[in-house]
Amino acid sequence: MTQDYWRWPESTWTSKDIDWKNSSTITAGVDIGSNSTQAVVMCDNSLFGYANLRTGPDYRESAGQAMKQALGKSGMTIRDIKYTVATGWGSRNVAFAQKIVDEVNCHARGARFIYGSSVKTVVDLGAQTCKAIRLYDWGRVSDFMMNDKCATGMGRGIEVMADLLQVPIQEMGERSLTVGKDPEPVSTTCYDFANTEAIGLFREGYKENEVLAAYLFAIAWRIHGTVGKVNPEKELAFTGGLAKNAGIVKRLERDMKMTALTSEYDPQLAGAIGAALIARDTVEKD
C-alpha cells in the first residue's frame, strides 16, 4: 500500500462542441517543463483540447504523449495542425514544432488569454523556476525577474515535502490554511533547508497543519522576494503548477497586499496556451 503522496493529478480534455474541420486555423502549443508537460490545441481563438502530464525522463516522448492525449478521440492528427510552437525547459525536444519561443513571453501571452487583457503582472510559479513578469498595457513584456539561484526548485521541493510528510500534495495548501494565525516561516534560503527545518518543528510540538503553514509561508516569502524586484502592479495573475496551491497563493496575496485574478482555466496551461496563440500570430503574419 504505497501511496505516491507527491504525485499530482494529471488531466486531459478535448472539446466535444467545436467542429474542428470547420475552423480556419488550428495551432498548437507545447510547454515542456522540468516537471510537467502541457500540450494545447486551439481552433481559431478557442481551446480545443489539452493534456497536462508529468514530464518523463525522455522529453521527446513526453511531448508526443501530451500531444496525443490533447487530440484525444477527436480524429484530428498532428498533420491537421497548421503551426506548433514549443516552449519551456525542454522546448528543443518537440519534433513536430515549427518554432521555439521562450516561456516568459508564452506565459505572458497565455495569462492574458486566461485572465483577460487587464493583466499587468504575471507570476509563473513553476516546479523549477519562479518568474515575475511585467507587461505593458498592450501586452509586451517590459521587465521580468527570475528567482535567485538558491530559490531554485521550490515546486520540486514541495513534492519532496509531500513525500516526507506523507500528505497528498494537492491537499497541502488547504490544510495549511486551517491554521488560525501563521507561525513564523521556516528557512527561506532553499527548499532543502526549509524541508528539514519544517520536519524539525515536530520536535517543538507543532501540529501537522502548523508545519505546513510555516513551510508554505517560507515558500511564499521566497517567491515574494522575486516578485518584489519587478515592482508589481495590478492586475495580478498567477500561472504554473503552484498557482493551484492555495496555501502559497493566499499567503502571496497577503504579503503583496494584492488580490490575483481568477479563472476557470487551469493556470498550469498558460505557457502552452500562450505558445499556441503565438503560433496563431505567426500564421496570420505570414
Partner: peptide
Amino acid sequence: MEAFINMLKPELVLK
C-alpha cells in the same frame, strides 16, 4: 537569455 533577447527583439509582437 532567450526570454530577455526576445523581450528586446522588436519583431516579437504580442497582442
